[in-house]
Design a binder for these strands. Structure first.
Lengths: 210, 210
DNA sequence: CTGCAGATTGACTGGTCAGTCAATCGCTGG
DNA sequence: CCAGCGATTGACTGACCAGTCAATCTGCAG
């Protein structure tokens, strides 16, 4: 599927980078291939020299970035850390990914992850791998007894991932403030909310009412 | 905007019901207006007699159902119940909505809620109202001291809603089993996971390791 | 200098559909 | 029985755009 030719990897990259900007700005369905070509400063036809279809551009962007995230999750799981810290690292990685390249993350979340129906099963499998990576972290926490045994690890992973995706979605659609403080604070809040729960323990509850 | 005429409300309803089935099966973007007309057993042009555009059909379906959910959340909040039970009722209502009419919920989640970019700000406001309803439940729990004060209620609501949406998404795309037992079990699990947290308290932890 | 191969160009084609509209239907009240 | 009006029909139009392709360019190897 359109392997990168020996020379001139520049133009291919320029097209991908332009596509990120255009997809983020106009949405995948509401932009023309010519918009991407114009943004890249390249002739229309060249896009089809490097990619088989508009959709392949999106697939490429998604797979490239998603693999980085899957690798990061695996690497974090391999560290010798308490489970809560591992989850905090995963949340931190994803949030930093958004902070570092909001357009790319917007495209991945909005056009792929949250639009899984449009592109069918191809991406569902990839997305599931992220669940599984998180579930593996939860699973070892359950085995060592620090996490509840009553909540299946796949279910827990789903809650964790769902909360993060919702958070990113809030930033993407500007219903949540996007400041460095918020990004940092959210890393802790999400872990505290999901791992620690919303409820007070009995002791805290007394303290709060006293 | 195309108010229902005095007589013959049947056909209008038939078109809406057909649209649910077609949108769920083929996706909003990948179906033709003629598909909806055919499914409804109605001439193409009649669709435009009752609706201004394809998109208005989707808007109508969404707003109709979303309002029911907003009302339910408000009604649940007004009950005299512990906060956890209120959240359990909200989760139960949403999950039962899916169980009762999976096609409609699929359309709402996949084509509207998870595709907020395509349709712009109109629906973002409606979606935010659901957050706010949930946040109000959390807020009173914080005030009475049963929920942590360190997690803002809007943030908590986002986690809760995100987890539920992820759960529905799993059912919609058939990555999670759809049985009555699973539906019931999930109502409890989601509340236990989000309110109680994934971590064991110290006592449970001892019990688990012993 | 020549010729090949891959890079680059952009005009063009083919197919798709949302939305329009003029014609017909069928009820209802006079 | 007729006139009038909303309901209903479906052929048609206009716009849009993904993807094709033949022509041109560029750089390098022989």
């Amino acid at each position: 599927m359109s392997a990168a030719p020996k020379k001139a990897p520049d133009k291919r990259r320029m097209i991908l980078d332009a596509a990120v900007r255009v997809f983020a700005r106009q949405g995948f369905h509401h932009c023309r291939v010519s918009d991407v070509a114009d943004e890249a400063g390249v002739a229309y036809g060249l896009v089809y020299h490097y990619f088989d279809s508009k959709e392949e551009i999106l697939n490429t962007l998604f797979l490239e970035r998603w693999q980085i995230m899957l690798d990061a999750i695996g690497e974090i799981d391999a560290r010798d850390l308490p489970s809560r810290d591992k989850l905090r690292s995963v949340a931190g990685f994803i949030i930093d990914s958004y902070r570092h390249d909001p357009d790319l993350m917007k495209v991945i979340i909005v056009e792929v992850t949250r639009a899984a129906n449009s592109f069918g099963a191809l991406h569902l499998d990839e997305i599931r791998k992220a669940y599984e990576g998180i579930a593996r972290i939860v699973e070892s926490a359950r085995e060592e007894g620090s996490f509840k045994s009553g909540i299946p690890s796949e279910f827990a992973a789903m809650c964790f991932y769902g909360a993060i995706e919702q958070l990113l979605t809030g930033w993407i659609f500007e219903v949540l403030p996007r400041t460095d403080e918020e990004f940092e604070r959210s890393k802790d809040l999400i872990v505290e909310a999901i791992c620690g729960g919303l409820e007070n323990g009995a002791a805290d509850q007394l303290a709060a009412s006293g």
